[in-house]
């Protein structure tokens, strides 16, 4: 089982990103589950989504304490120590950030992918809806899920013009993510 924790803020699409990873995993023939942790709905408040993917049905109903991968939508949270809590050795970070991650952010992180998802989303979608771009970067960095499955998940979530724009954004995230490893 691979566990993912998505860190963001209310309104950034952390929960939707988690859901789309599950849809993509299922389209790729695997099982998955995701659920968010937030109290009363508030834009801007930190939000965490817990995702698990596996080749069998996920029975565990707990939060993710030992993630294999962190997806950080809000670049400031990459500097928060609590973001890395419990991350497994050989952990992977995917972050919405303008520059390549030069410094190893945590001893357990051995691979990072940075993409300027906010900029790409502004160019392709016209609003800072950068979660779908981050899914492209996630697919490229982890290689756990095919880009095609991510695009399939987008098709199940959006339609029309919005779908087209989000597909462009996800494809660019996939291509333009800048990797580093330690």
């Amino acid at each position: 089982m691979r566990e993912i924790r998505v860190h963001g803020r209310g309104g950034q699409g952390a929960v939707t990103a988690g859901d789309m990873i599950v849809i993509a995993a299922v389209m790729g023939g695997e099982f998955g589950s995701s659920f968010p942790l937030y109290g009363d709905a508030r834009r801007g408040a930190p939000v965490v989504a817990f995702v698990a993917i596996d080749d069998q049905r996920i029975r565990l109903k707990t939060q993710v304490y030992t993630p294999d991968c962190l997806i950080v939508l809000d670049s400031r949270q990459k500097d928060w120590p609590e973001t890395y809590k419990g991350v497994k050795s050989e952990g992977i970070l995917v972050v919405n950030h303008t520059n390549t991650i030069e410094q190893q952010p945590h001893p357990n992180i051995i691979k990072a992918g940075a993409v300027d998802a906010t900029q790409i989303a502004m160019e392709e979608i016209g609003i800072p809806a950068f979660n779908t771009c981050m899914l492209g970067a996630f697919a490229a960095t982890t290689e756990w899920i095919e880009l095609d499955s991510i695009l399939g998940a987008l098709e199940k979530t959006f339609s029309g013009e919005i779908l087209k724009k989000n597909i462009k954004s996800a494809e660019r995230g996939y291509k333009e993510v800048k990797g580093s490893s330690w």
Binding site: V22, V26, F31, G32, S33, S34, F35, R57, K61
Partner: peptide, 11 residues
């Protein structure tokens, strides 16, 4: 279970 199932996505 609310939250744990009501908000949990599964195939």
């Amino acid at each position: 279970d609310g939250f744990y199932l009501s908000y949990r996505k599964d195939p």
